[in-house]
Design a protein around this nucleic acid. Structure first.
Lengths: 347, 347
DNA sequence: TAGGTAAATGCTCGCAGTGAGTATAAAGTT
DNA sequence: AACTTTATACTCACTGCGAGCATTTACCTA
């Protein structure tokens, strides 16, 4: 379940004959496969991703250290890497010194325009990894950065993010109004309302990806139009990332939020023993919304996701809380164990 | 949402320098990218997938028509195919004559051993597509085959499938008992109980993939050990497919079942107008379980997923039912519209 | 040592959703 | 006219969950 096994099939040695098709793509240009990792940890009630600052070669061979945050990534070694996952682990170890635990494949990107230099076709396979935050080193100047640096509109824990009313809502309104026909305008308005919970809609924490894509389409994130005068915009609508890395981060957060409610993934991010409040804070950090304390306790306890250790926490003040641990047996008992999230939120 | 757009990002032209790594995989063997399609339709209350019977070249260049059912697939044309999805659509059109509508990417497989001939590295990107069943033609001898031909243990509509108690449960029991140590045996038993809802566990319709993988690991599907004397086994535990195609089908069914409950995907499989019972039958066919009629109606109606057309059905006998259509406006109103599935089932 | 503070832990109430069953309506068939 | 078949409507009990309030347990300070 949470394991890292991916036992795989060896097929019989047959090849499908490209059924009398056109010239046949066998002679086409070489394909390069990139592996990207979104590595998530939570510390200080802040969800973070591991980024690097690699050396880059700009179009005209000028070498410098990039100022943008990259996702750890590298090319698949088609001979040396037995599996895609192993290739990813190898690159992450090399660039950040981190040995990954939980990994899951996210998505494969392969549009022709993603190609770096126009020579070879570039495919990218993105992975989501969960880790407990540790010190990082390695050849990529790795650093843990708060994920809401890149997606500031996603953090509703202290209420509706200011950036929405200040920048996003007006920006998207203009974009919708700029549609070439009334029907386009109306479709755009719908899309805006659904994604950001404006109008009569409610905010759905899970629509992370469609929100980012909407902002991209509307030209409200720096990646959409990399011109100098949009630095201001970049600031207010989150930090940019190179290529499509920020979209991959959005996809990861969406996947993670979705998974929270039906698989016990949170525990990959917590130490062996933790208080219920700590658990709650991690869930809140990832889902981006505050939760009702007693109800959260009730939920977690009666779902038997955790068991008491008997140990107590040693807090700076207040009554010490009991330490709990994840009850792995839950996997054998309940069909879809996870932390169900409510629709609305207090706090 | 249900659209087929996948607008994508053009990044700035920078290349990550493979940070002083080893030899660098740029000079490795060429990588070939395959695209596989699991195309699902429902007719006669039976979920079906579109398969082909291509000509194949066996290891020693003997040409014949394969007796196994293949998924429509083909290689990515790294120059001609602008996006992966377009490449897939092209191949499906060629092999089956079908123009696909709803498509979503499933998973990318890339273990080294999947390679056909050991020369070039083979990567496969699998897609799930939904279609209304139509006549198919084209160069691949296409045919719609019931999906439960390949996964017979997944259909619980008329009660617990006989194959489970007859073949699967005993077979998995033996496999678990054959573990090399008590802890391995116990872990295997756990895995069996979770996947198939044996012991105290309940059947979880969504664990399609782990069930197939378990059967594979236990050697209970023909793909696991392609020896002649297992033809019997093959019959009883479902029809085999080449390579990892059956696993891909399992992954598709899992994805589809999961998605039913929070996205209105069923309507991709139904005609414009349909009766509520027809809708229910399709959901049952896919989820593999019977549903309570009145409760299903109530659910669908009060979720406002459908609206009345005013038209009536013309059934061979019994009272004619009203025809409904999908209310696209739900997408604007509810955060996660779908057909919630109950835990247990009558019938 | 008593009182105050901060946090953990426990309890209750009311509403909405859902499982299960029953009753009635509308068509065709015998 | 009685019967069959299917659609449609309604009821009722139970569970889960949102929300708020009450109590307990530690440490700190006067």
């Amino acid at each position: 379940m949470l394991g890292r096994s991916d036992a795989w099939l060896k097929g019989p040695t047959v090849t499908i004959v490209p059924s009398k098709s056109r010239e046949g793509p066998a002679v086409a240009s070489p394909i390069e496969v990139g592996l990207n990792a979104v590595i998530v940890a939570v510390t200080d009630e802040t969800p973070r991703i591991l980024t690097i600052r690699p050396e880059v070669v700009a179009a005209r061979d000028a070498v410098s250290v990039e100022s943008l945050d990259y996702l750890p990534s590298g090319s698949l070694d088609s001979i040396g890497d037995r599996t895609l996952e192993l290739g990813l682990r190898r690159w992450v170890r090399e660039q950040t010194g981190l040995d990954l635990g939980y990994i899951e494949q996210l998505y494969t990107f392969g549009d022709r325009d993603r190609d770096a230099d126009g020579q070879r076709r570039l495919l990218s396979i993105a992975y989501l990894a969960l880790a407990r935050q540790v010190e990082v080193f390695g050849q990529g100047s790795p650093a843990w950065r708060p994920i809401y640096t890149y997606l500031p509109w996603e953090d509703w824990r202290t209420g509706r993010p200011a950036v929405i009313d200040a920048v996003i809502a007006p920006g998207l309104g203009e974009w919708a109004a700029a549609g070439t026909s009334p029907s386009v305008q109306s479709a755009r308005r719908d899309r805006v309302e659904i994604a950001f919970g404006l109008g009569a809609m409610t905010w759905d924490p899970n629509r992370v990806l469609s929100r980012y894509e909407l902002l991209y389409d509307a030209g409200l994130v720096a990646e959409a139009k990399p011109s100098a005068k949009d630095a201001q915009l970049s600031m207010s609508s989150g930090s940019a990332m190179p290529l499509d890395h920020r979209r991959i981060v959005a996809a990861s957060l969406e996947r993670l939020r979705g998974k929270l409610s039906y698989r016990p993934v949170v525990f990959e991010l917590l130490p062996e023993a933790f208080t219920l409040l700590a658990l709650q804070r991690v869930v809140e950090a990832l889902s981006g919304m505050g939760l009702h304390k007693s109800n959260f306790r009730r939920l977690v306890e009666q779902a038997q996701l955790v068991e008491r250790t008997g140990e107590l926490d040693a807090p700076p003040r207040g009554r010490p809380a009991e330490l709990f641990r994840f009850r792995r047996e839950v996997l054998r008992e309940r069909p879809a164990p996870g932390v169900t999230l409510p629709r609305r939120f207090p706090r």
